[in-house]
C-alpha cells in the first residue's frame, strides 16, 4: 500500500515569552503523518505535547511559533493568517480535548452545539443540517440521538459528553483528528469504549489521528507509530510495538519500567530519580542527563542529535546507536 503523506512538521519551535525571557516549550519538533495513520504522542506533563498539537492549528497563543513548518496537504499552516487558517481548523483538522465539560457550552443543548459545527462547514442548512446532527450522533454510537439532541451537557455522563465532542469534531469530515488526552478524565470502563469508538470511526472515515496521552499503556491499543517527548523535544520515534518491546532511549526505557503492572507485584517500584525539568531551567546538553542512568561526562555538554538508527526509527541519544543490529 502506498502511503500518502498528510502532515509534515519540520523544525517546529514554539516559545513562551515571560519576563523578557524566551522559553522553549516546543523545541525543534519534526515528524510526518500519513493518511489514515494513528500516531501517538506520549510524554509526562509539561513536556510540550499539548503545545505541539495547538501549534499545528494556530492555537498556541500566548506562545509564539518562532520557526519551523507545518505542511498539511501541501500548505504551510504556520504562514497562514488568522482568516485563512480557519479554512483548516475545525474543518480539515479537528481537535478534541481532555475535559469535555469545559469545551461545551453549559446553556446550550448538545444538539444545537453540534448543529453550529455543522453549519460552520457552510454546506448544509435547516432540516438537512439537523439530519446531519442525528447522523453524527449515530456515528458516535449515542444511544438515543433524538434525546441526545435535546439534552444539556450537565445531564450527561463524562463518556456521553466526550461522544458529543467527537460528533462535533467529525462535523467537517476531517482528514486529521487531534485527540488531546481524550480519555484521561474517564473511568477505565468508559475509556475502553471511547478508544474503541475512535478506532471504529477511523476505519469508517479513513482519517488520521494524532493521539496525545501520558498513558503508555493506552497508546499500545491505538497507534501505529509513537513519538516520545521529553522537555520539549521528541527523543524517540518508531513503530509502537517495537518501541514498547525494545525501547532504545534511556528515558523511554525508564518510563516503561516504572509503569505499575497489574499482573505482578514488585517490592520496590522502579522510578526515575528527580523531577521533570521546567522550560526555564532545562539542563545543558542532553536534557535528560541529570536523571539518566547511563549518562557520561559528555552528556551535559553536547546536545544529542535526533538520528535515524534503523528503518523508521529515530533516537535522540548517541550512546544507544551501537546496540541496534
Amino acid at each position: 500500500m502506498k502511503q500518502i503523506i498528510l502532515l509534515q512538521v519540520s523544525g517546529l519551535k514554539t516559545h513562551i515569552i515571560t519576563n523578557g525571557k524566551s522559553l522553549p516549550i516546543v523545541d525543534d519538533v519534526s515528524f510526518d503523518m500519513n493518511k489514515g495513520e494513528t500516531v501517538g504522542l506520549v510524554g509526562e506533563s509539561g513536556c510540550g505535547k499539548s503545545m505541539t498539537a495547538l501549534s499545528l492549528i494556530g492555537l498556541q497563543k500566548p506562545a509564539k511559533i518562532i520557526g519551523g513548518k507545518v505542511i498539511f496537504n501541501g500548505t504551510d499552516l504556520v504562514s497562514l493568517d488568522k482568516k485563512s487558517i480557519r479554512e483548516y481548523r475545525g474543518k480539515k483538522i479537528a481537535m478534541i480535548f481532555q475535559e469535555p465539560m469545559t469545551s461545551l457550552n453549559p446553556v446550550m443543548s448538545c444538539g444545537k452545539q453540534i448543529l453550529e459545527a455543522v453549519k460552520m462547514q457552510g454546506e448544509l442548512n435547516g432540516a438537512h443540517a439537523k439530519q446531519r446532527v442525528i447522523e453524527l450522533l449515530n456515528l458516535v454510537k449515542y444511544p438515543d440521538p433524538k434525546m441526545g439532541y435535546k439534552s444539556y451537557p450537565h445531564e450527561l455522563s463524562g463518556g456521553m459528553r466526550q461522544r458529543v465532542m467527537i460528533a462535533m469534531a467529525l462535523a467537517g469530515k476531517p482528514d486529521l483528528l487531534i485527540a488531546d488526552e481524550p480519555t484521561t478524565a474517564l473511568d477505565v470502563t468508559v475509556q475502553a469504549e471511547i478508544v474503541n469508538l475512535l478506532k471504529k470511526i477511523q476505519q469508517q472515515l479513513g482519517m488520521a489521528i494524532l493521539f496525545i496521552t501520558h498513558d503508555i499503556g493506552l497508546i499500545k491499543q491505538v497507534s501505529d507509530k509513537i513519538m516520545v517527548m521529553y522537555a520539549g523535544q521528541i527523543i524517540e520515534e518508531g513503530p509502537t510495538e517495537i518501541i514498547l518491546k525494545s525501547p532504545l532511549h534511556p528515558y523511554t526505557k525508564a518510563l516503561l519500567a516504572c509503569l505499575p503492572r497489574i499482573d505482578e507485584k514488585m517490592e520496590i517500584l522502579p522510578s526515575i530519580p528527580g523531577n521533570v525539568p521546567t522550560p526555564d531551567n532545562y539542563p545543558s546538553g542532553c536534557r535528560f542527563h541529570p536523571r539518566c542512568s547511563i549518562a557520561v561526562e559528555g552528556c551535559s555538554v553536547d546536545e544529542p542529535e535526533f538520528v535515524e538508527v534503523s528503518d523508521s526509527r529515530k533516537v535522540r541519544c548517541p550512546y544507544v546507536h551501537h546496540s541496534v543490529a
Binding site: I216, P260, I268, L269, S271, I272, P273, N275, V276
Partner: peptide, 14 residues
Amino acid sequence: LDVSVQAQIINLLK
C-alpha cells in the same frame, strides 16, 4: 502525578 514520579511516591509510602 506523572508515572516516573508516581513510582517514587508509592515507594516512599511503602
